[in-house]
Design a protein around this nucleic acid. Structure first.
Length: 596
RNA sequence: GGCCCCGUAGCUCAGUGGAUAGAGCAACAGCCUUCUAAGCUGUGGGUCGAACGUUCGAGUCGUUCCGGGGUCACCA
């Protein structure tokens, strides 16, 4: 149990004893004491003043005295300033916590809670390579999945691959028309980039044809419909839906190129999935539910045969759920897949990591499922995140203003190499060890950068300035870990071990106290991050922990401490800090180096 | 236009109704004979977009306005 909740219940009991009435959590607040005041935790008394008709000062002293009296092992002193009762935690309590947890690599993790959750993320189209926006999505989804696991849930990581549809046919047509039989192998290009090139070629050619048609007298609208390459593409989509063997063969071949490229990227960035759904398998799902919805009068049919849902009562207007010709739109299959997920996997919760541009779409989806009468509608959760924008504006693949995922990863790894060589601290590493270190640092910088901000907020990336390795960054935290390992190696080589004495621990110095108090908060942070599905809470916590440890490190020597007791205390502090850094970074998908 | 999100230091961001609003970057000044200087310490930098309201107390809650973005397709 965290200090905050221990203090909370202690205060509730003491207040009831003092004033003979019941109190609850919501009746007062517990905060961390601001650094300019003496104390560790603060009970804010204002809210109690009215109910008890006592001045905050009197109240504070009465409560403070009783707390100290009733919990002498927990509190060592208190003071009252205005309406704030500041409490100091006893040193013995802090050292006890340290002793209990310092060597527990699972500190902060919760036992299984019998909840099964699916997290869907990544969900790329198979017609172009991944870009920076996908990376935010992937890192976010992966991290949230790990955070939920740490809190005891069973998590299924899933991806939906958008592998069919008109956009896929565009690359296929362009390949037929321009590739002259080229393959990723023949031109030595990564498969997803190779296919992406033909998607771009399609758009170039399409634009050219439209312009020519306009020149020869067509209107813009006509030209866009009549352009030969577009007509061919639409025909190909029909052929695909009818299972034309040649088209299916080409589709399979080109998709396999893309998958190979994606797999390479996923492997490098450390992303994985327990299950992949393919849109080509699921796009027909949902039609049955549309029929059911019509029977139940949840949906209605317009004169032209198209099917709609009226959500104007929910402020969501009318939404099309099936085309007039009976074919699916996006939401049709989403309805089907959403239901299939719950029924097949017996989920308690289904999380979708999707950009905030689809907020409306996801609200509608949830509402439709609710109206269809499925009780799990409330357990569909859209984890929406803001777009990654460039200083020059939005990323658009068609206009070539995207930051390619493979490129940026490569750049980060190269930057890690440059810094490492300049510092020259690991000149004895083998080539393999160096390569591994560069990956750990480069990806650490990249992931931390994308995860340290609140997912909900859109973020700006400046391609001109490379991502930093100093300050509020992954490498800063990794560096702190490496420093601790260095201490532990030194102590180990001297043949010392951490003693198991518990008595005679001298008074804690301010930075030692602060560190223990901060380490204690890790479990609460992991739990908050899970409740809010927000990895940035972990990133902020672990950065502040590293910062605090670095101050401690600069101020006090561990290996050459004043005496054995201090040395043991500081070794424990260091070991626990290292464990938590490793654990927290793992939740962000970031690895730690033993040296850097 | 309807609905939704966002405006905090020059830049990128924390701040979950409580005390004099905090970090990182950038700028400036110090600190390596001692466990890794990718570090530490310090200085400067703010009408929290604006106004009104609720409250003992508002960056945080409410209303209105201003500025930016998203979305409202028989697109995906």
């Amino acid at each position: 149990m965290s200090f905050t909740s221990i203090i909370q219940s202690a205060a509730i009991k003491s207040l009831s004893a003092l004033y003979g009435q019941e109190f609850f959590k919501k009746d007062f607040q517990i905060n961390e004491t601001k650094p300019e005041f003496e104390g560790d935790y603060t009970i804010v008394l204002f809210a109690l003043v009215k109910a008890l008709k006592k001045s905050p000062e009197v109240l504070g002293h009465e409560l403070g005295k009783l707390l100290l009296n009733n919990y002498p092992e927990l509190f060592s002193s208190y003071n009252v300033i205005k309406g704030f009762l500041n409490l100091q935690i006893a040193d013995e309590q802090l050292t006890a916590i340290l002793l209990q947890h310092y060597n527990d690599e699972n500190y902060g993790k919760q036992p299984a809670n019998q909840k099964r959750v699916m997290v869907e993320y990544s969900s790329p189209n198979t017609n172009k390579p991944l870009h920076l926006g996908h990376l935010r999505n992937i890192f976010l989804g992966w991290s949230v999945a790990e955070i939920l696991k740490a809190n005891g849930s069973e998590v299924i990581k899933s991806a939906v691959v958008n592998d069919r549809g008109i956009h896929i046919c565009k690359s296929m047509i362009a390949w037929q028309q321009f590739a002259d039989g080229a393959t990723p192998d023949s031109v030595k290009e990564k498969g997803d980039h190779f296919v992406g090139d033909y998607y771009v070629k399609f758009n170039d050619e399409y634009k050219k044809e439209v312009e020519e048609l306009i020149k020869s007298g067509s209107t813009k609208e006509q030209a866009e419909k009549e352009a030969p390459i577009m007509k061919k593409t639409q025909q190909m989509l029909l052929d695909w839906e009818q299972g034309n063997p040649g088209v299916i063969e080409l589709w399979k071949t080109m998709n396999s190129w893309v998958y190979k490229g994606f797999d390479e990227t996923y492997k490098r960035i450390g992303s994985d999935f327990d299950h992949t759904f393919y849109e080509s398998n699921t796009y027909l799902l949902g039609k049955d539910f549309v029929r059911e919805g019509l029977e139940k009068n949840i949906l209605f049919k317009k004169e032209d045969g198209s099917v709609w849902i009226d959500l104007s009562a929910e402020n969501l207007d009318e939404k099309l759920v099936l085309r007039g010709d009976g074919t699916s739109v996006y939401i049709t299959q989403d309805i089907g897949l959403a239901i299939q997920k719950f029924e097949e996997y017996h989920l308690d919760k289904s999380i979708y990591v999707i950009g905030d541009e689809q907020l409306y779409h996801m609200k509608v989806l949830k509402e439709i499922i609710r109206k269809l009468g499925f009780p799990f509608a409330d357990e569909i959760f859209h984890l929406s995140y803001g777009m990654v924008e460039l200083t020059t504006g939005k990323m658009k693949s068609r206009e070539g203003t995207v930051v390619d995922a493979d490129d940026i990863v490569e750049e980060m790894v190269a930057t890690a190499e440059k810094h490492t060589k300049e510092l020259g601290k690991v000149n004895d590493f083998s080539a393999d060890e160096l390569r591994e270190l560069y990956e750990i640092l480069g990806l650490g910088a990249m992931k931390f950068y994308l995860l340290r901000v609140d997912p909900k907020k859109r973020m700006v990336f400046n391609p001109e300035e490379s991502i930093d390795f100093h300050g509020f960054t992954g490498p800063f935290v990794q560096y702190t870990y490496a420093r601790i390992q260095s201490i532990l190696r030194k102590v180990d080589s001297e043949g010392s071990v951490i003693g198991d004495e518990t008595s005679d621990i001298s008074k804690l110095l301010p930075l030692e106290r602060q560190l223990i108090l901060f380490l204690e908060k890790y479990a609460g942070t992991v739990s908050d991050a899970a409740d809010e599905m927000n990895p940035s809470l972990i990133a902020n916590y672990v950065f502040n922990l590293a910062k605090l440890y670095n101050s401690f490190y600069a101020e006090h020597s561990v290996a050459n401490a004043e005496n054995t007791e201090k040395k043991n205390l500081r070794l424990r502090l260091s070991v626990m800090t290292a464990h938590i850094i490793k654990s927290a970074l793992q939740l962000l998908g970031i690895k730690v180096p033993a040296r850097m």
